[in-house]
Design a protein around this nucleic acid. Structure first.
Lengths: 115, 115
DNA sequence: GCTCGGGCATAGACTGCCTATGTATGGAGA
DNA sequence: TCTCCATACATAGGCAGTCTATGCCCGAGC
């Protein structure tokens, strides 16, 4: 997959996943991989910097959790600002994909006769 | 609009527009702007380097045309390699958008979960 | 002892879009 | 005449973001 496609949607997807309930980095990647049917693989080198960035921007909040088996996880939850930003990003994404589909003509081109 | 969204789709859109008939840079931008309903604005600083890149890669071929009103245009037409690459890029785009929509869950998901 | 899966993190490379600026023509308006 | 704007192409430098590669720690299995 062209990795450049991910650019600009990563933050939105992270926010969206976290918006459904607190989770941690590794699990987010697994969730997205599963739900995208294997199409989207969030690499660590992209995911963790993005999480730090979103937290720095006040979109996410985190806290460490020590598990029983000696591991530690950094759980994230979305903030009010994050919810707001997510809505904006989803709207942008919708507008963008519609724009691309419109520019490409796409399979719907023959529906144009509306008058 | 988040400019990063455009990343990775620019080449595809250029190839697609040119695939419908020879055209030139400025007109491509106008076409895409119109067909995307104002959502996608191909800036000169992105468009022209992309055209040069695609030509260098053998996806497009160009020739200069002098117009009657003293202006000159560089018309592009798509090559066989360009057609092939376009098909690949469109498939990637489709897979990617489906992946994102899947990862986002879609509009129905939280209705189900709340029940 | 070594490898593997889970879990987080960073540095540096690489890529690519955008802003700003430049060239040039020709028509509209002050 | 002079300026502004639209048409038309082009490039340099800035900036942002993803990936590769690597590192750390823990526990389980061979």
């Amino acid at each position: 997959m062209d990795s450049k496609l991910l650019s600009g949607t990563l933050d939105m997807m992270i926010l969206d996943v976290v918006a459904r309930g607190p989770t941690y980095g590794y699990q987010m990647a697994q969730t997205v991989l599963l739900k995208s049917d294997g199409a989207l693989e969030l690499k660590e080198g992209s995911l963790y910097p993005a999480l730090h960035r979103l937290e720095r921007q006040g979109m996410l909040a985190s806290h460490w959790v020590d598990t029983e088996d000696g591991r530690r996880r950094k759980y994230y939850k979305i903030t009010a600002a994050g919810v707001k930003a997510l809505a904006v990003k989803r709207a942008e994404w919708l507008r963008f994909t519609r724009g691309v589909d419109g520019a490409l003509g796409g399979a719907n081109e023959w529906i144009v006769e509306s008058g």
